[in-house]
Amino acid sequence: MADRILLAHGSGGLENQCLIRDIFVAGFENHILSTMDDAAVVNIGTLAVSTDSYTVDPLFFSGGDIGKLAVAGTTNDVSMRGARPLYLTVAFIIEEGFEIDLLKKIVASMASELQTIGVQVITGDTKVVPKGAVDKIIINTTGIGELVCDCAVSHIQTGDQLIVSGPIAEHGACIFAAREEISVHGLRSDCRSLWPGIESLLNKKLHIHAMRDATRGGLSAVLNEWAEQSHHLIHIVENQVPISTPVSGFCEMLGIDPFTLACEGTFVLSVAEQDCQSTLEVLHQAGYPHAALIGTVMEKHAHPHVILQSDYGTERLMEYPSGEILPRIC
């Protein structure tokens, strides 16, 4: 096989077959995929389905890569709805000239992440586009899961306690530093699959009203969306929000608000007050030692928003992320 992806690899002929068989089917091996029929046939109960496309620069970063991200990101969205992720569809759009070794590395990383959560790839697609038509590679994945516990924004209630599963902004800071070629050390993406932790939570039958992973737009996007969609005021105690020292330092350095930076393995929960302590305990046991109570869902409000309280009593809005995130001098 050539060492780079050629347009021929996407043309439906022999090269295309080889690519599918040697890299994708071999990498994602399972009996549904191996039939290589036009469509996969699966049989499950109430479905939760989520799709997302992944493009990241750089492709490989501290703590993960585009492959791990494409598996974790989509299955996390399924998990957040209270569903057990079971199957994944994968579509690759690859730029002509992409190194085959890199593709193999990405597939291997996807396979390993799939294994940790027990999810199978059941169908896929590959397109090769001329050089310059995309930036190296785009991966689209669709996750299919079976509903275990109905978690949704509409279930959020006054008095709910808000918990974040770990330190925020880790992925955003890491990618930002790498992309802007700001040579900083000490940052690592939090990219990981959330299902194992979610499963332990759901098993305990706790009154978890809503969960959302704080991806693009970070913690601030989740909380502002929740406020807006549920029409509730949200109150957050600023110094309760876990942020690692390097991420704080990075944000100080560039004048960036950590609340608006993405996470890829950190989520927010809205939990009934009586189950708050148990939820924290389960999370601490399940690999989220820094999970913390950060605030409360307040009354309904005509202009719902998120209030951030400082530890000396002042209040401000937690702003909704807007515009491109760039370092500022001011």
């Binding site: 040579s183 900083v184 050390h185 000490g186 020292t245 330092g249 990075f250 100080e252 350095m253």
Partner: peptide, 8 residues
């Protein structure tokens, strides 16, 4: 070193 982040 800025709060644990090192840079040039």
């Amino acid at each position: 070193d800025t709060m644990g982040v090192s840079r040039e």
